[in-house]
Design a protein around this nucleic acid. Structure first.
Lengths: 234, 234
DNA sequence: GTTTGACCAAATTAGGTATTTCAGTCAATT
DNA sequence: AATTGACTGAAATACCTAATTTGGTCAAAC
């Protein structure tokens, strides 16, 4: 390993340390209350050094979101592939529920949680947020229906709305409604997967074409991740 | 009709006018921004007259919630009884979704919408809100399971959580997530009912015992309404 | 007997100023 | 060359006081 490469590795390592620090502080105190100085101290470096890696506080936050979002996507694919009953779009939905629930930053982003996003709540557009959070829009549902992964006799905009509502609801009810002893998210996800499968899986079981479409979907997801990582490395 | 009765009728008529005025203004401008004077003017009477009917602004609001909540319960029972496919707990859930979505005040109460509740957000406890909004808690689900109206092989606290999340999500997603051309709530409710029925109805179709339990549930609801109206009339 | 609206105290808001905080820079240090 | 932290201007916050609003009352009007 030559000097330049070693230098590079140390650089990325420190960048990750900065992002780790930012993640801890922001998810705990919120974006507004977390100062660049706080992040630097938590990462064990000076404030100036932060600016050797990120051109602004917002840029740092965006980099953090990208990192978390890629990690989540990778973990999601991993879990779906590992799940013996995982070969459906509904299992993707369910596993993503679990993972989102466990990721305070992306959960806050998806649910537009002002307590954590602070001022960013206004400045980041709804679209930006959803791009990073794998929304289930109408177009997506239509594609799934066309690919034979979802029942085609259900109005796609109704189904898309229902999936969004379900996801948003599971991630946010307990903020608004008093829930005595909330069940573990994994248990909820499992029931959700079963429910969606019973209700919206195409009649007649898994077709070979369906499985292929599912694998194309996974591959497509991986491709997106690769592209984003490449464009970030420039 | 003697004088006293006529007087009484005029009195209730005016009380309803006040509540109508309050409903319009509060759902439009929020509780804080709506003054007692505003309500009086909208109802075409003086501020003093308001206090002949309600001892305070909060008492007026509480009376409004009770009225709306009773009306909603009556309409719900009506719709469920009118629906040819209405004889299940899931149709109650679905119809209540539609009716809640169409009732800005109770929707705001259930979703704890600060924009409408204003200061009341803090002063009204979570429990009070839910009492008036027909929550689907664990105990309720357990009762439904015991009565044979819901599958018994599903963890009641998971199911209760899921139902709450679904309801909360459907009523609030569009506040947080960009939804292009949201479908009509009736269409969503229909799909929700079908989904819940496929997923959580007991195996083996509607039993006679199930139907009886359902009718007991309806009768129980009516009884609650009667009691509340009686206690209000004193 | 009813209903009104002027009236009051309490609370909220407006407006303005002093103080502090903080993102971002860069000369000095290592 | 890499890193630091004192420094700066802009922005947010705290603080104060004056002005306004508003829930609730009650003597006067109807």
């Amino acid at each position: 390993m030559d000097d330049a490469t070693q230098q590079d590795a140390r650089n990325t390592e420190r960048e990750q340390r900065i992002l780790d620090a930012a993640l801890t502080l922001i998810t705990h105190y919120g974006y507004d209350k977390t100062t660049v100085d706080d992040i630097a101290r938590e990462a064990g470096i000076s404030k100036g050094a932060i600016y050797l890696h990120f051109k602004s506080k917002v840029a740092l936050f965006e980099a953090l979101v990208l990192r978390e979002s890629d990690l989540l996507a990778e973990e999601l694919i991993q879990r779906v592939m590992d799940d013996p009953q995982g070969g459906t779009i509904f299992s993707i939905f369910g596993h993503s529920l679990s993972i989102f629930a466990a990721n305070p930053l992306l959960k806050a982003l998806y649910t537009r949680d002002r307590r954590i996003l602070g001022d960013l709540f206004r400045s980041i557009s709804k679209n930006t947020m959803q791009e990073q959070t794998f929304a289930y829009g109408v177009e997506f549902v239509e594609q799934m229906q066309a690919a034979g992964l979802m029942r085609q006799d259900i109005n796609p905009s109704v189904l898309a709305y229902l999936l969004s509502a379900l996801r948003y609801g599971v991630l946010t009810v307990d903020d608004a409604i008093e829930i005595t002893d909330a069940p573990p998210i994994e248990a909820v996800s499992a029931v959700v997967i079963d429910m969606l499968h019973r209700s919206f899986a195409p009649e007649g079981g898994d077709s070979e074409a369906g499985k292929q479409a599912f694998m194309r979907l996974i591959e497509f997801g991986r491709e997106i991740i690769r592209q984003r990582q490449a464009s970030r490395a420039q």
